[in-house]
Structures are given as C-alpha cells and as structure tokens.
Design a protein around this nucleic acid. Structure first.
Lengths: 340, 340
DNA sequence: TGCGTCGATGTGAACGTTAGCATTCAGGCG
DNA sequence: CGCCTGAATGCTAACGTTCACATCGACGCA
C-alpha cells in the first residue's frame, strides 16, 4: 500500500474543471440541470482523475447506503447459488450493491448475524433459501429495514414479504405426471423439515396424492444430500417396492438412482424416479432425470424488484408476481405418459 | 417504512449514559481506557437503545470501509459457491463484510464492474474463479486496493497476489493413478481455455503423460457443462476408444459417463473416467466417480487471510501457504490399481 | 432603461464518527 | 501547601457528500 495518494474527491475534480464541488455533485446526480459545456468539462475532469464517488460520504449524508443485504444459507446448493447471482445482477442494475451474509453453520449466532446486518446499514434485506433457522436473524432486522424473503412460505413473519416459486404446484405436477404414466404407488423423500421449500413440496405432494387417489408414503430427511436419498431408498426397498420415488431435490435423486441401480432395479420400468430443481447435470444422469425446473433467476429478479419497491416506500400491494410457476421437465427416469 | 424513527446515534447513547459521545466512541474502540463503571453505564445505554455504529460515518472518518469486494464469475458452479461461502465466514470473523460482485455474463462491461468495485470503497478485493475475462476488471482495481486472486495461475498480473489449489498436481495424480491401473492411453477433455484452472489442469496433464509415457490426446471445450462432456466424448469415440477419459470437472464427467453408457461401453472395464472437483453427488453417480477433491473452504480462508495481511500493510512475503494440495479420491469409475 | 424572472452556479451547514488536543480531577511528593 | 503527573473525560475539527438557500448573470418586457 505504502502512502496511498488519497483518492480524488469532488473538490479535486471541481478544481480541475474550474467549478465548485457542488456543480460536480450536480453533474453526477442531475445531469440535466447543468449547462452542457460545463458538464463536459466536469466529466472530462472526472475521467482524467479517475474519480469515483465516495460511497461512505454519500451514505452518511443521504442516510441511504445503496446496499442490500442478502442473507443466505451457507450451503452452496445449486438453487441458492443461481438465485444469488441473479439477485446481484438485478441489484446492480437497480443501483444497489449486495452485501453477502451467510448463516453460520450449526444454526447458532443467528441473532448476532441479524444485528450485524442491521449495523451495516443496509437499505433492505433479501433472504434466500429460507429455513426456520433464519427466523431469529430475520426477525431482528425486519423492524429496521424492509425484508423480502424468497421462500415457499406464504404466511410469513410480521413485516416480511414473500416472493417465491410455487413449490406445491411443482409437486402437484409431478404427481399428476406419474399418475398419467400409470403409476399407482409413490414414495416421497422429503427434504429437511425446517426448510420452507421442503415443507411446501411435501404438502403439495400430500394434497396431490389424495386428490389423485394414489397409494403414497413420505419419508423425511435431515439434509438434501445424495447420501440421504441413497439411504432412504434402501429403507424404502426393505419394506416393499413402490412404483415411483419422488425425491425432494435432484441431489437426493442421484442417491435414489444409485440405490435402485445397486439393487438391480430398472428405471423407470421397475421404479420411476423424479427429482426437483433441474440441476445442471440432471439431463445427463443415468437415466436422465425427470425433474421440476425452477426459474431461479427470475424469482431472484422478481424478489429484488419487489424489495426495491418497498425501499422506495411503496407500501401498497405491488404488481410483482409473488409466486412463480415451476416447470415439469419430463425425461427418461419416468415412463412415457399414456395417451389412452 | 413510514417515518422511520432514525436509528440512535452516539449522541443519543451518550445522553442516556450521562457522558459525552466521545466516551461512547472510546468504549467501542478502546474499552480498556475508560473507567469500568462508566463503561458499564455506556454499554447499558447501548443495549437499551439497540444502538449500532453507523458504518458509513465510520468509513468516512477512518477511510476504511471494512468491506472486501468479492469478484466472482456468475456461473453458480460448485467450487466457486463453496469458496465464496468460506470467504464470507472468514471475512466476518476478521471483522469485514463481503460485497459480492459477479461478472456480467457475456464478458462485456468488465471494466465497468472494476470501476464500480473501486467506487464502492472496498478495502481489498478477492477474485474467485478467475478467468481471463476478469483481467480488465482486476487490472482496474489493482492499483487502488490490494487484490488476492484464487487462481491456478502463479505468475499473475502486476499487483495481484495469488492463492490457489495446485491444479497441476491434481492432474498429475490423476495420470499417475490411471497409469497404476494399467491404462495406456488417455484423453483429457479440457475446460474453457480462458479459465486459469482449466489451463493449469491441462498443463499438468500434458506434463504428466509425457513423464509417464502414456498415449494422450487433449480436446478443448468452451464451457464446463455436462453437454460438452457428452459431445466431446462422442467425438472421441468416433476416432477410436481410449482406455480412459479425464474430464476437466465433474459436470463434464457426468456427460462423459452418459455418452459411454449410451454407446454400451462399460465403465471402467472399457473406459475409465475421472473428474475433478468432487462435487456433491460424485460419489453417487453411476458408477461412483473417481475425482480430485479440492479444499475449497480452506483455500477461501487462506486467501482471505492473505488479503487481510495485505490490507494491514504487510508488504513482505506472508506465511500463508500459496498453493494447497488437492486430493485424489478413487472410486469405481477407474479400475483398481495393480499391486504388481 | 429598469425591473422581474428564471436558469446556472456558488456557499454554508449538516450527516455520525474518530483523531488530536484541551481540560479536569485525584493523588503523590517536595 | 503547591506543583507535577497521569488517568479519565470533554471539546473541536474534519472526513466527502448532499440539501437548502443565496447569488449571479442574461434575457424579456414595459
């Protein structure tokens, strides 16, 4: 670093352009109000000096940080990662930067995370991959700044708006598809019960199998891993053989495929398999996996848009869609639908 | 939002505790210097009011933002996601927050991203998943703030320190392992040539096959997707059948497995397959995949530690290890090693 | 020619914090 | 008893920006 030659300030730009610093400020904030030749001179000076506005000073004066906090689970899952990226890009386009905060593993320290997020002065908060463990952190900040959660949960905590993908509908479409392929019995391997998405998929599944009159069973998992899918499948097979297994996400489905293959069962002839997420690679599993594609990027953009509306003070109900539809992707791991 | 009742300031805390705001500042910054009973009173007032320091004011006065910029590719890949999380946690422990910035897809706007990062006043920058497309952005900021890149490239751009995983060594171990299983010919499906990691794996591969005297060929890809792995494998098979295929990452390996299976080839008896990354799920592919596990979390922590050293002004060579060793994970997609 | 008006720019103050120096007070020593 | 020392605390200024208001000049119209 040595003696860093101090970044140029508005004063420096002003001196070089022969105007006052206020004019520089105006060029940056309301370009229309300043005379074209003056503006050009200022812009030239800015370019020469490589000037960039001091975010801290700006935030201090306006009491708006142009920062949005993104609170996410630390679990490198495909969906959250996709969503985070989409949020970041949308935020940049809206003039915000993203302060990334991940929940510490193990679940403790949640309220501390909330306090930090609050202290960092973010203008709003977006919660990604919401699960129950985040509630303390979210609750702590919801009073001080608008919060939007990307979640399946519709009735949310006080002050928290929810934008999400209609997980229940996704599960429902899976069941309907299985039904049309002639499946009569299906087992759902549910995700961790404290994750809202997992709950919603499970609920959707239960409602759908009742409506369709299928023979169904649900087994719960503690995580989203392939290993869970593998072990639960072995458990299932000990008790009998369903005609289909619906895993709560693609990772678990990988474990399901592995277990079935190990037991010499043919997919989908003996057991059909369905996942959820349409992870990169699902298409090339063996066999390629029928799954539910979620519009992660779209939901990220929608959630950010809604958050921006809230931050801009629009308290009224917004135009943003709140529940985006997922899309069933049929591949080789389920039997062809009967055209009857 | 309505009329948000303005977050409490030091002045408010001071009034409540019956001291001057300077004393409050001291309690926060140098607790030792203030008398215990005064300190307790101040701390009580802080707790009562739910006071949190204003980051912007602090940053303005100290000209340190306590922010580190994390520049990453927007590509939701497993490795980068893992690394990002690890960096965030390590940063929080070191008293920094993470400003996330992803490269816009398509590659244009790189210098604009750099300028924004610079303008946001970060104290240092960490580049994750470095590829050549990031160079303009990195170059733009390297003069103003310390930059550490997590990359395979050892001779980096001026002013950019590099911490990484020894990709070449990983490739080398793969080749040695294949050799020990009796493989004589191997094809490497290289990753995108503008990614430093891909280049390093390729170089390591080429050096190793020369040293081991194997019959080798390299095919390049434009991305890291399963589809590329699939299509390149079909190309390979048209020209002959190697005894092994080494994909540049696990995603591509998924495509390889799929293509081989489609052509009725047995894995590993006809063709052995190796991936790279040890993605969640690699263990449960069919067959479970031999691959190279990278210590993503560890490298994230190491890189952040090094960056903090640089920001603290340690210009001298640091103690942080610069190249961490990957670890070969042998599974069923390669033949057992000969004990000869 | 003088006055009002409006557009363009300059000046002063303030955001909340920290650094530097000034002040206060208690206690020890000559 | 007065002075010095040091610990504890208070006061002032400044960081770079934006907001509110003041100023300046030019132009139009009577």
């Amino acid at each position: 670093m040595s003696t860093a030659p101090r970044r140029p300030s508005m004063g420096d730009v002003a001196a070089r352009a022969g105007v006052s610093y206020q004019t520089v400020s105006r060029v940056l904030n309301e370009p229309g109000i300043v005379r074209p030749d003056t503006r050009d001179r200022v812009l030239a000076a800015i370019a020469d000096l490589g000037y960039a506005r001091n975010r801290a000073a700006r935030a201090l004066k306006t009491s708006r940080s142009s920062l949005i906090g993104v609170l996410t689970d630390g679990s490198s899952l495909f969906g959250p990662a996709e969503t985070t990226t989409a949020v970041e890009i949308a935020a940049r386009e809206a003039g915000y930067s993203v302060l990334l905060t991940s929940m510490p593993p193990g679940g403790q320290g949640a309220d501390q995370v909330g306090a930090e997020l609050l202290g960092s002065g973010v203008d709003g908060i977006l919660v990604i991959a919401a699960h129950a463990g985040m509630d303390p952190a979210v609750g702590a900040v919801a009073q001080a700044a608008p919060v939007v959660a990307i979640s399946a949960q519709t009735s949310a905590e006080a002050g928290v708006e929810v934008v999400g993908i209609d997980q229940g509908r996704g599960a429902c479409e899976v069941v309907a598809h299985l039904r049309r392929t002639g499946v009569r019995s299906v087992v759902h391997l549910a995700g961790p019960p404290d994750w809202f998405d997992a709950r919603a998929r499970r609920c959707g599944f239960e409602a759908a199998v009742t409506a369709e009159g299928l023979d169904a069973e649900v087994l719960g998992s503690e995580d989203w891993t392939p290993r869970s899918g593998y072990e639960l499948t072995l458990q299932v097979l000990e008790r009998g053989r369903p005609e289909a297994i619906f895993a709560a996400n693609d990772m678990m489905a990988i474990g399901v495929l592995h277990a079935l293959h190990e037991r010499g069962l043919r997919i989908p002839e003996d057991v059909a398999v369905v996942g959820f997420d349409n992870t990169l690679g699902a298409e090339f599993l063996l066999p390629s996996l029928t799954t539910v594609a979620q519009p992660f990027a779209e939901v990220g953009r929608a959630a950010l848009g809604h958050l921006v509306e809230l931050m801009d003070g629009a308290t009224e109900a917004a135009e943003t869609p709140r529940a985006l539809p997922p899309r069933l992707v049929v591949r080789r791991s389920t039997r062809p639908e009967r055209t009857h």
